[in-house]
């Protein structure tokens, strides 16, 4: 059975043959971490294997004292009775799928991934396997991402509009991945625009620059004099800043949110943002189906809370799809607060 390679346990997803955990929720002896978002990269484990493309971000998240083994994409290394390699997942800088070869078969755990082009990270690499573990954050056919060029058109239109009206534009988005992707797209359109950053984004933006990603010029909001008028300027902040005292200096601002959830009108209206921009670092419905096909896997395991629809749809179409928790006890994972 597949349980010899993948066995969910309360601490996280465990590989018995290789004696390691993937993205453990609790401290363990040996961890393979797919990417630097807080719900995947947690400090406290004795040893971490990560992709070297994301080393800087991992250090930022796991702390300077953590023991990190960095691997190039595609490099094979041995863990227990398995041979492991990391392959780009296209989610954020340094994000990886984990390929595990052992017990006479190959399993691939995708981690979070997307299929759309992203100038800030290596594109998703389809890795053939017998067992494919896929995410399903946006596992319904209502989620089909518009081309990024179209979204950036809308974003630039919004900024023009804010400039005309003389109000600041505050764009909320997750501090790791989404913010840098927007900055990397924006610099191609408006190379001279300086973007103001909330403090929580500053170091992460710097980490991307150090990794060689070209981004719009940025300055921390805190560098601006008190009472500065931000009319017509773009300010980026994590969603947690919405409604906080920090927002007081942008009283008249038009607000936007960049997230895959913005595809649904009710979700945007509920959050009370003026504008929603559909930008996601996760696969949309066609991307999920394409990846399952590309994997050539004989069995597909689906993670994330609301994967029932994807599983049932795949089964209706002759794919042996199952919830990952059917292999063991999965910790109660809520949909990621980050990186959607």
């Amino acid at each position: 059975m597949d349980g010899d390679l993948l066995h969910p346990r309360p601490e996280g997803l465990y590989c018995p043959a290789g004696d390691f955990f993937i993205d453990p929720m609790q401290p363990v002896a040996r961890a393979v971490v797919t990417h630097a978002h807080g719900d995947h990269a947690r400090s406290g484990s004795a040893l971490y294997h990560v992709a070297d493309a994301g080393l800087g971000l991992m250090r930022e998240r796991l702390g300077a004292g953590s023991v990190l083994h960095a691997h190039a994409y595609g490099e094979r290394f041995v863990l227990g009775d398995t041979t492991v390699s990391l392959h780009p997942s296209g989610h954020v800088l340094g994000a990886a799928q984990v390929r595990i070869e052992g017990c006479g078969k190959v399993a691939v755990v995708s981690g979070d991934y997307k299929r759309d082009p992203d100038p800030t990270c290596a594109p998703f690499e389809p890795v053939p396997c017998d067992i494919f573990g896929t995410e399903s954050t946006f596992g319904l056919p209502i989620y089909r991402w518009p081309p990024m060029s179209q979204v950036i058109d809308e974003l630039v239109g919004w900024l023009d509009d804010c400039r005309t009206r003389g109000v600041p534009a505050v764009l909320f988005c997750y501090a790791l991945g989404k913010a840098q992707r927007v900055l990397a797209e924006l610099v191609r359109r408006e190379p001279d625009r300086v973007v103001h950053l909330h403090g929580a984004m500053v170091r992460l933006v710097e980490a991307y620059r150090e990794a060689g990603v070209t981004l719009s010029p940025t300055v921390p909001v805190s560098d601006s004099a008190k009472g500065r008028d931000f009319a017509g300027e773009l300010i980026m902040a994590p969603p947690s800043a919405a409604g906080s005292p920090w927002m007081r200096r942008f009283a008249k601002a038009s607000t936007g949110f960049a997230s895959g959830w913005m595809q649904v009108r009710g979700a945007r209206r509920r959050r009370g943002y003026d504008r929603g921009f559909v930008v996601s670092d996760h696969a949309d419905w066609p991307g999920l189906l394409q990846s399952v096909t590309d994997s050539q896997a004989r069995r597909v395991y689906v993670t994330h809370g609301d994967g029932e629809a994807l599983i049932r749809h795949l089964r209706d179409h002759g794919v042996d799809a199952r919830p990952l928790r059917s292999l063991g006890t999965m910790p109660d994972l809520r949909t990621s607060e980050e990186g959607d």
């Binding site: 319904l140 056919p141 209502i142 649904v264 009710g266 029932e308 629809a309 049932r312 749809h313």
Partner: peptide, 9 residues
């Protein structure tokens, strides 16, 4: 699947 989508939207 249409019902599931409707429930979400």
């Amino acid at each position: 699947l249409i019902d599931d989508c409707y429930e979400q939207v």
